[in-house]
Design a protein around this nucleic acid. Structure first.
Lengths: 232, 232
DNA sequence: AAATATTTGTCCGTATGTATC
DNA sequence: TGATACATACGGACAAATATT
């Protein structure tokens, strides 16, 4: 095939290193041979090897540190999401925030039953802590339209991440992680009224969880997403 | 922050090029400046630039050809799909396919109403064509467990991609593209019976679309995902 | 059709910064 | 503190593929 002959060297190296990792059953934390050793054994220049190595790094397979070596990373699909988002970014679509809200809505409601039955008391307690953090923002009168502190957004993100942290689906976890992380870039201003509503929505969810009442929980989730992205 | 100082040069360049693409609104087919020009304008060595460039290439953002230049690519998830799969292979997490099925299930059912009302007759016709392609695989008796041709998988993927192609959410489109692309790597063997069932499921969906009956369509979608990932 | 310019592909050598012992 | 091992980064040179004249 033409590809065998023409295929760029760095891509062949890229594949060979992946193959090496698989054959040697390297686990996260394990190290690859040094750059020099790989160069020699594959018979390629340092330059080409580095192109392959950096490609492996950007796709989340390895990280390399001076003085240490090339280390296998844990599975992490963040790179996938960031690639995805960079494509979306490139499309210059200003409605991304709405798209994310919409996807989050569908995913969280679609998985709420699994989430409900996977959560332990410790998880619910942690979610409750986040609500407490949110509530602490209410006492401070800020005139109504001050941008919320990063702590509020973080608490909100942590609340939802925790909710789905025990669902046995690593892809769902990373998608939800990513969607909530993306919010940081859109740190919107909320009125006191909106803050109150947001907190109340989360309180309802928590209460249903402590009551161990799925139907109530499900209704609280639906309520949580009501008007969430219609208000704009 | 420490990261600002320590962040590897090639990663900074990687980001800057993405930024450049976005700012200049470069579209697929457009070209980046030559390597030399980028080196000069960013003040980095050609070596570092290439590490960034190859990282952009592996994530499917650009391709570079000798004598031509660096060309913006169309969105194509194949590259990082293969990365994801190598992770999965390495981590021995055989459940990734199930995770994807599960996500697809939730997303497609969650968006089916929007899809239904966004589809035009031409779209439905195209989906119908895909079903015809699937049916053409039935006539051939292959003994029951012959691997399906790539055409069958492609038709299935195209069917679903078309279904959601008019929903105004680029993220959803990308994710569905991604999930269906993944299937190509797991071209499973299906029994003749399974093929028949798969085709029937799609026929039901098509019929409901032509009848313009949302409730029937919704039921057909639910039926489509019944036993889809429980059968294993 | 052939020569030439342009652009990426590949290699080599050297110096610097960082972590480990 | 010093020595060693390692990745990071730079610059120059030539080869190979493609486009242009």
């Amino acid at each position: 095939m033409k590809n065998l002959k023409t295929r760029k060297l760095y891509l062949q190296v890229y594949d060979e290193i992946k193959q090496y990792i698989k054959e040697h059953n390297l686990q996260p934390g394990d190290k690859l041979p040094t750059e020099m050793e790989i160069c020699e054994s594959l018979g390629v220049s340092r330059n080409v090897l580095r192109e392959a190595l950096k490609s492996l790094e950007i796709t989340g397979v390895v990280t390399s540190k001076p003085g240490v070596g090339i280390i296998i990373r844990e599975f992490n699909s963040d790179f996938f999401m960031s690639s995805l988002i960079s494509h979306v970014d490139a499309s210059n679509d200003s409605k991304i925030k709405d798209y994310i809200e919409e996807l989050r809505h569908v995913l969280e409601l679609g998985f709420d039953q699994k989430a409900f039955y996977s959560l332990g008391l410790a998880d619910i307690d942690r979610m409750n802590e986040q609500v407490t953090i949110m509530q602490s923002h209410l006492g401070v009168d800020n005139g109504g339209t001050k941008p919320l502190g990063i702590e509020f957004a973080k608490a909100d993100a942590m609340f939802h991440k925790t909710m789905f942290s025990k669902v046995d689906n690593v892809l769902l976890s990373s998608i939800i992680d990513f969607f909530w992380a993306y919010d940081k870039y859109y740190n919107t201003k909320l009125s006191t009224k909106s803050i109150e509503i947001t907190i109340e929505k989360h309180e309802r969810i928590i209460k249903a969880l402590y009551d161990h009442d799925y139907e109530k929980f499900h209704q609280a989730m639906i309520y949580h997403y009501t008007y969430e992205y219609l208000k704009k």
